[in-house]
Design a protein around this nucleic acid. Structure first.
Length: 491
RNA sequence: GUCACAUUCGUCUAUUGGUUAGGACAUCGGGUUUUCAUCCCGACAAGAGCGGUUCGAUUCCGCUAUGUGAUACCA
């Protein structure tokens, strides 16, 4: 049978890491098994819905390159893919269950329910609906309906026996039916709850495997019972391990960025996110760890998903990001990094051909030095405009060398550079090395002052490429400025 | 409280009865005769505890502990 899986987000918030992991695993399983991946929007909670959330789902998928076979904006046999457009369906099925005796109308209002819960808490009883309306007589029901009393439809959970299922990841899971609730299927506003809508749609859409987070385990017996009540076969269940923060708590905002598009803004590459998330609870073997989405789509296997929760480790994500950045061509990386230069005000919105060519020359200098795309401007800030204020002498290394000697060295370097005659970088480098011998200092003592003069910092890309980018005029001017600076700092 | 699930280096994981328990990130040290970074090499570091089963348990079973999740007219 052809595999059919789905990701069914509810547009009540921005896509976060946990949701993405679920989406990814579903997508990968579909692709690896030659099946279909369906996107279904579970917008049954009207109070929490907002438009931005829906757009964010699409943006997230687009950015990461996750595509669906059926879903919004993609005509398919199972339209529509918004649950808010399938309301009559759920209504019909809910009442069908009432007629068959698997469910009942409950007329309890929220006031009574609140009071009930309060009492249960006070008496340290286990919580839950007390099944007040479960055995109402036909007359009572007729009376309440005639009065137009609002009601919800609740499932009639069996009072005894056990319900079990075999999870593809966790194995056999079993619960006593007397621990189950008479959960709500249809809310008083006519909208279905997750439990009803999810089961109806999964069945109607021919879903064969449900991959979802482990937080759903407790409601799975309810779902099994629902399938039974409808006389439908239930899909396979695969409960994915949870994603936690560094402290072992469920990943949330206080752990840092958790919204997917936030990662994009912060300079992460989709390749890194995909690769990292794929390895949260899944592995191919004991050594392979670099995977593209396409590769994952071939080798992904449910059997290799593990059971225990995984901590989201920003350090490793960053490492992946750096690796993928270094795999980019200069042109590609320039396009990726450009927005951050614009944001910093280093270039304008409309980049001229000359500006672009200039930026392109900077890429090799920063490529090996950045972990996040957003780090780029910091590395090559010296290449734009005037140098920011810096303390020349304090930054000079090694400190043992006298200021007067540093000035002499810089003057010599100025002379060497102003008398250039088509020397190669190697020749030039050799000449500067000779200064170290001349003044009996270490190589660092001749290179570091130059580095600071040109970039204003003691941590910079390689010196010679920096000089090429800057051009001779600027190089000479900056050396002169540094000499003046040291002299004034010393006096 | 009740119910469920989980438990290998700090973190992600491999090992599905017999291994010096392997790899990666992070950390630390070294190298690449100028910084930072890249790259390379090396070091550190793990089977929650207690009982079984077995010739032999990280691996199977039980208990305990700890952690997490669920317990909504949210998903």
């Amino acid at each position: 049978m052809k595999v059919r899986v789905r990701y069914a987000p509810s547009p009540t918030g921005y896509q976060h890491i946990g949701g993405l992991r679920t989406a990814l695993f579903n997508y990968l399983y579909a692709k690896a098994s030659g099946g279909d991946f369906i996107l279904r929007i579970e917008d049954t909670d009207r109070s929490r819905y907002f438009d931005g959330a829906l757009q964010d789902i699409f943006d997230t998928f687009n950015w990461l390159g996750i595509d669906y076979d059926e879903g919004p904006n993609k005509p398919g046999a199972n339209e529509p893919y918004f649950q808010s457009e399938r309301l009559e369906l759920y209504n019909k099925y809910a009442h069908e269950l009432v007629d068959k005796g698997w469910a009942y109308k409950c007329y309890c209002d929220s006031e009574r329910l609140a009071k009930l819960k309060e009492e249960q808490e006070k008496n340290k009883q286990s919580f839950g609906y007390d099944r007040h309306c479960r055995d109402l007589s036909a007359e009572e029901i007729a009376k309440l309906d005639a009065a137009g009393t609002k009601y919800v439809i609740r499932f009639k959970a069996p009072l005894e026996g056990k319900t079990s299922f075999d999870d593809k990841i966790l194995g056999h899971i079993e619960v006593e039916n007397n621990t189950l609730q008479d959960f709500i299927l249809l809310k008083s506003d006519g909208f279905p709850t997750y439990h009803l809508a999810n089961i109806v749609d999964d069945h109607l859409m021919g879903i064969t495997h449900v991959l979802r987070a482990q937080e759903w385990i407790p409601s799975t017996p309810n779902h099994i019972l629902l399938y039974k009540a409808f006389g439908w076969e239930h899909p396979e269940f695969c409960h994915l391990p949870m994603v936690m923060g560094q402290d072992g708590q469920k990943l949330s905002k206080r752990h840092g960025a958790t919204q997917v598009m936030e990662f994009r803004k912060n300079g992460y590459l989709p390749e890194a996110i995909i690769n990292f998330i794929a390895l949260l609870g899944w592995s191919l073997d004991d050594s392979t760890e670099m995977f593209s989405l396409a590769e994952l789509s071939k080798v992904f296997d449910i059997a290799r998903i593990n059971k225990s929760p995984a901590v989201f480790n920003y350090d490793k994500l960053k490492w992946f990001n750096g690796v993928y950045i270094r795999q980019k061509s200069d042109e590609e990386l320039l396009d990726l990094v450009l927005p951050y230069f614009v944001q910093r005000g280093l270039v304008g919105e409309n980049v001229s051909a000359d500006e672009r060519a200039y930026l392109l020359r900077l890429i090799p200098l920063l490529k090996e030095r950045i972990e996040l795309l957003s780090d780029a401007p910091d590395i090559v800030e010296w290449a734009f405009g005037e140098l920011p204020p810096y303390k020349a002498w304090e930054a000079i290394y090694p400190k043992k060398v006298e200021p007067a000697a540093v000035v002499r060295i810089l003057n010599d370097e100025y002379d060497i550079l102003s008398n250039l005659d088509k020397e190669s970088d190697e020749d030039l480098q050799h000449k500067i090395y000779e200064l170290a011998a001349k003044y009996e200092v270490k190589a660092g003592a001749v290179f570091m002052p130059l580095r600071i003069a040109l970039t204003g910092t003691n941590k910079s890309p390689e010196l010679f490429p920096v000089m090429h980018v800057l051009g001779l005029d600027k190089v000479l001017a900056r050396i002169k400025a540094a000499i003046a600076k040291i002299e004034s700092e010393q006096s």
